[in-house]
Design a protein around this nucleic acid. Structure first.
Lengths: 239, 239
DNA sequence: CGTAAATTTGAATGGATTCAAACGTGGTGG
DNA sequence: CCACCACGTTTGAATCCATTCAAATTTACG
């Protein structure tokens, strides 16, 4: 749950983490605009680079919004609580995604944002946005792109993660979590996380995962990313 | 499936349908800005007011986007087709909602948009938007509001329409379709529409609906809106 | 090393699906 | 005006799948 604050920012060319900022909405606009570097640095200085541990809460549902967050590394889940007390994960967001967009409309946060793994993100206070967008209306296009991206993830949750048998849903989730550049291997994910993403019970999630391992379709060694056979998963996903 | 084109536009003060435009993103911006009325009329003239019959297709998934649509009356469903051939409804949108927002980002439509009932809407070509947004960056805020609204509906589909028993889901759907100002009465909806919204089969949708009528929780007479007991539906929804 | 947490497994139950058939209703043509 | 067809809806029975509740097992961590 503990968090660490880092000094380096995206305007600092010597910062090694800067490569991750290539797709950042703010930086793209900022660097492409003709703002004097001093002013820029001044504007961006309230932006904090933060590292969260796994299972850390970034903000709570209903809380007054004071910042938006761009994810530099790791995966964040947005969860909502139902009237009957159960929780449902409505979105998984990763690198270059923005969480807390509703803050741009001065609305309280609609979800509770929780990290799945260790997560590095940039916290951008809403006043920084207001200041920037005055002189840079092009920034809006970036926000629309991220909003659209959020919508697409939501659609994925409906069509892929809430439709079909538990086995199909899990196969689709694992493929979606997997790294295409590395045989679709994916990081360990808790059984109750799987359950709240797919709208099934923890026991069912466990049964299916255990079964996939027995059938040698996935293989997980503690601590390491899980390997899988993507073609077999694809077959199960589309059945 | 046939459609009718109407001449009247939101800049025409004598048009009786104009009252519906009070919340229109375009008109709000337009009327609050200091554009000469001639220029305004010229800009808005490509906007067509269209009436679609029930079950009419407004656009297809994958199609190049050329317009966005604001709904003046009626309900539209956005559906996606899964690899295995089945369809899933991912959104229901109604009055003052915008469909086809992805067009603003020059992306092809991501869904097929189909009317549930007779629908009246305004078709706004994308060039009209480009022309307007040049001088009126405030328009972006309106788009963000509609984007956010789309997201909230998507979240509703995940938490309310894809979670719990078939009976709970149907109760939540009927309450959501109902008119709060009129005892939550709702218009007739096909059993397979219910099925594709809730991710259940047509037979299950029919069974539950028939059962609710037998238990006198809803009562539907052909052609007329259905009456219901909202408190009993609420009880079922939250169980 | 020992305890708490996460995962796995079992058996019984309940709910949704599948496939099939029957029913009702609106519309068309004889 | 009636017969008939098409389509949406309803119902039944068997099967399948996920849930529930309980217990055993493994893993993580102080």
């Amino acid at each position: 749950m503990k968090t660490a604050l880092n000094k380096p920012k995206c305007t600092d060319k010597t910062w090694e983490g800067r490569a991750d900022c290539v797709h950042c909405a703010i930086r793209n606009q900022v660097l492409f605009a003709d703002i004097p570097i001093e002013e820029l640095d001044h504007l961006v200085s309230p932006i904090k680079n933060i590292t969260y541990a796994a299972n850390a809460v970034i903000y709570h549902s209903g809380e007054k919004s004071e910042a938006i967050y761009t994810i530099r590394q790791g995966i964040i889940k947005l969860v909502q609580y139902l009237p009957n007390g159960s929780v449902r994960t409505v979105r998984l967001l990763g690198q270059n995604d923005i969480v807390g967009l509703e803050g741009l409309l001065a609305q309280p946060y609609h979800h509770t944002a929780i990290t799945l793994q260790e997560v590095k993100l940039c916290r951008i206070p809403l006043d920084v946005i207001s200041a920037l967008e005055k002189n840079h209306p092009e920034l809006h296009r970036q926000f629309m792109l991220r909003w659209q991206r959020n919508l697409e993830v939501a659609d994925q949750f409906i069509t892929e993660f809430s439709t079909g048998t538990a086995e199909s849903r899990i196969a689709r989730l694992l493929l979606s979590l997997g790294n295409p550049g590395n045989g679709y291997c994916f990081n360990h994910i808790g059984r109750d996380d799987i359950a709240s993403i797919l709208g099934i019970t923890t026991e069912t999630a466990s049964r299916v995962m255990a079964d996939l391992q027995r059938r040698d379709i996935i293989s997980c060694i503690s601590g390491l990313p899980c390997n899988c056979k993507p073609d077999k998963l694809r077959l199960i996903a589309d059945s």
